[in-house]
Amino acid sequence: MHKRIGKKGRSGSWISILLVSWLLAIALPSAVWAAEKPYPNKSINMIVPYAPASGADLGSKIMADKMTEFLGQPIVSVYKPGGGGSLGAAFAAKAKPDGYTVLVGSVSPVVLSPIVKNLDYKLEDFVILGTYSKIPLWLAVKKEARWNTLKEFVEDAKKNPGKFSISTFGKLTAVDFVLELLNKHAGIKLVNVPYKSSGEALTALLGGHAEGAMVSGASGHLEAGNVRILAVADEQRLEGLPDVPTFRDFGYPIVVTSHYSFCFPKGTPPKVADRFFDAQKKAVERYPKEIKSGLRKVEQWADFRSLEESRKIFKEADELFAKLAKELGVSVR
């Protein structure tokens, strides 16, 4: 037996339908608006894979400070040192690809580490977002050290095989490769003493715990006059430092360069990556002198490249280090 629905029941049903329709009319545009909320709408975590005061830290802060103006949100440094930069790189590679985790990338953690270590990431797991600087890899000694040239240093090292300690920012890193190539070509045995960053490696040098430091940049110590550079692993002498010779000037075919680039994890939406890169580009265009001078104070050379150019640079570095790793017998590929 069916019950009849009275006028009151029917009107109540219509009221319910109208109420639901009204709520949907309000909720749907809000949901669409939330889904299309412009990027970024909160702070961005910048993963620094080395300790504070490292080249990665100092240079990225200069860029981040200027980029904030164009992003409308702060970029916050998050330190994850260790493993020659691979711990921070691994963290960033596995982060949610939403544009709120960006790695301060360079050749050592992004390219070299996956070639010589069994890691759960590789170069292809990152979106390279244009380079912003180039940092020299060089051999530094204390300013008052008894060696005035690389030639004198090598001659002394030959007389003391295995007794010269060289502080670096890690084993199986770009500077470790430069060190091993110098050992090979000069016929010497320098011992790698690894630290968590170039800053820590230089502190060890200045504290008398190493004869030299094979580092990237000099964390301000060159500017301060605390260290002297014996040789740089570049194709030619650096702009502004004409008195700093290359390894090639001494007959050693050692050329290993390193660029810094912000990197998103693979899968980050292209429009998000483009938005971040655009902020970087606008910062460089508006503040070229401030960025260039700021980077030079921490021994980095401004080198802003397009997305295509930067990805080519990292791809070529991958090919170079794969070749060197096989020559030195340390490749895991």
Rank of each mutant, 00 (worst) to 15 (best):
M1N: 08
M1I: 08
H2K: 13
K3R: 12
I5L: 14
G6H: 12
G6N: 13
K7I: 13
G9M: 08
R10N: 04
R10L: 09
G12W: 15
S13V: 11
W14L: 10
S16T: 10
S21Q: 03
S21Y: 00
S21T: 03
W22P: 00
L23C: 08
L24S: 02
L24F: 01
I26L: 13
W33V: 00
A35T: 09
E36N: 15
P38V: 06
P40N: 08
P40S: 04
I47F: 06
Y50S: 14
P52H: 14
A53H: 15
D57C: 01
L58A: 08
K61P: 00
I62L: 01
A64Q: 06
M67T: 08
T68L: 00
Q73A: 07
I75D: 07
I75E: 06
V76T: 15
Y79G: 09
G84F: 14
L87N: 08
A92V: 04
A93C: 02
K96F: 13
D98C: 12
D98E: 10
G99T: 02
V102C: 09
G105E: 06
S106R: 04
V107K: 15
V107L: 12
P109C: 06
V110P: 01
V110Y: 09
V111P: 06
N118S: 10
Y121D: 08
L123R: 15
D125Q: 10
F126K: 14
I128R: 04
L129C: 13
G130V: 00
T131G: 03
P136S: 04
V141D: 06
V141H: 11
K142A: 14
E144A: 06
A145N: 14
A145G: 06
R146S: 11
W147T: 02
W147S: 02
T149V: 01
E152A: 06
F153H: 03
A157T: 07
K158W: 11
N160R: 05
G162F: 02
K163R: 10
S167N: 05
S167I: 02
F169I: 04
K171F: 07
A174P: 11
D176N: 08
E180M: 05
N183V: 00
G187T: 01
E200G: 01
A204S: 04
E211P: 07
G212T: 04
M214R: 04
V215Y: 02
A218D: 12
H221M: 08
H221N: 12
G225F: 01
V227T: 05
R228E: 05
I229D: 05
A231R: 07
A231Y: 07
A233S: 13
E235S: 10
R237C: 09
E239G: 12
E239H: 14
L241D: 12
L241A: 10
T246N: 10
I254Y: 02
V255A: 02
S258P: 01
C263L: 12
F264E: 11
P265M: 02
K266H: 13
K266I: 14
R275P: 08
R275Y: 05
A279H: 14
Q280E: 04
Q280V: 11
A283N: 11
V284D: 11
R286S: 08
Y287N: 12
I291A: 01
K292N: 10
E299F: 13
E299M: 11
E299Y: 14
Q300F: 00
R305L: 00
S306F: 09
L307Q: 00
E308D: 06
R311Y: 00
F314E: 01
K323W: 07
L328R: 06
V330Y: 10
S331Y: 07
V332M: 03
R333L: 15
